[in-house]
């Protein structure tokens, strides 16, 4: 049986307006690293709160480690680790005191599971007498992860652990997750950074409370509808304005120093037509090539169809 199962879960916070979650279903296998990928307000935190028994869903059911989130909430609370989106440790306690407090709270000791957190804890150990409120973003994340792991949970829920953390710390954090996965812990992690999706085994793309697709990152990319092209020219911003006026364009948007675009009907419209049109507009150094889409391209394609 899968470790985390969500079936047709819906949730509204307010009576009017769109619900936070609409008929969300997915499951996570034991020992899997599963990613919830979507922007703020997509409903990621709501999913976490339902799975950690903090919120009741309006409709649908969910189980974690075989326990029902409503009936067996007490059992779930002793076998999951949870790191909320906001840094949620005691700012006026030191690193050591926080860790010790949470260990005891979960009915264990720091020593009992030290092996699991050793790699992470050693990075912040030199500052163990420092209060948590005085730590840098990356160090706070590491401490929070240690506290969430201290009771060796079966399932680890990480709600946007890398938000607001710089690129270097983000990379380190994902390396830590890979090591934890190797220890057999099931991990559900959410992120608004699309480039982190490829680091998960399977992902769910989520937007405005609805799941757009669930699959391995590779399969999601494979399922990209039609062909995607990269367009380059000397002046990229003007290029974007011009290209958008071309009749056969389905999607066209900036992606780093290039534009990514797809045509409405791959048979009827093609790169050569666009190139000659752009040159007639006075664009210089225009080049186009077919490329493999990344997760962000897939997300944009999915949400654009949606709209």
């Amino acid at each position: 049986m899968d470790t985390v199962i969500l079936q047709h879960v819906s949730k509204s916070y307010v009576k009017e307006g769109p619900p936070a979650l609409q008929d969300v279903s997915f499951s996570v296998k034991k020992g899997e690293l599963f990613g919830l990928i979507g922007p703020d307000g997509a409903g990621k935190s709501t999913i976490f709160r339902i799975l950690t028994t903090l919120l009741l869903s309006d409709k649908g059911s969910a189980t974690v480690a075989g326990y029902d989130v409503v009936k067996n909430y007490h059992e779930i609370r002793s076998c999951v680790g949870y790191m909320p989106g906001k840094f949620s440790l005691y700012q006026d306690l030191t690193i050591e005191e926080n860790l010790h407090f949470f260990a005891t709270l979960f009915g264990t000791t720091v020593e009992a599971n030290y092996a699991l957190i050793k790699d992470i804890y050693e990075q912040i150990a030199p500052f163990k007498k420092r209060r948590a409120g005085k730590l840098s973003g990356g160090m706070k994340q590491k401490l929070a992860l240690c506290c969430a792991l201290i009771h060796r949970p079966e399932v680890l829920f990480l709600d946007e652990p890398t938000t607001g953390v710089d690129a270097v710390s983000r990379k380190e954090f994902w390396e830590m997750l890979q090591r934890l996965k190797a220890e057999g812990i099931t991990i559900v992690v959410s992120t608004p950074y699309m480039d982190e999706a490829s680091l998960c085994e399977r992902i769910a793309l989520i937007q405005t409370g609805q799941i757009l697709s669930i699959n391995t990152p590779a399969n999601i990319i494979k399922a990209y509808p039609g062909k995607l092209y990269a367009l380059m020219a000397t002046k990229v911003h003007l290029l974007l304005k011009d290209t958008r006026q071309y009749a056969g364009i389905n999607l066209c948007y900036a992606a780093g120093d290039k534009l990514h675009l797809s045509f409405k009907d791959d048979g009827k419209h093609h790169p050569a037509g666009l190139l000659s049109w752009l040159e007639s507009k006075g664009q210089q150094g225009v080049r186009i090539e077919e490329i493999t889409p990344d997760i962000e391209d897939c997300f944009i394609a999915k949400t654009s169809i949606h709209e």
């Binding site: 703020d40 608004p192 937007q207 948007y253 900036a254 944009i300 949400t303």
Partner: peptide, 20 residues
């Protein structure tokens, strides 16, 4: 100061259109 943190990819690009 980090104006687009957590914003979805489509809106992020619209934001940059405004910047341009």
């Amino acid at each position: 100061d980090e104006p687009t943190g957590g914003v979805d990819p489509v809106t992020r690009r619209q934001f940059w259109d405004l910047i341009y």
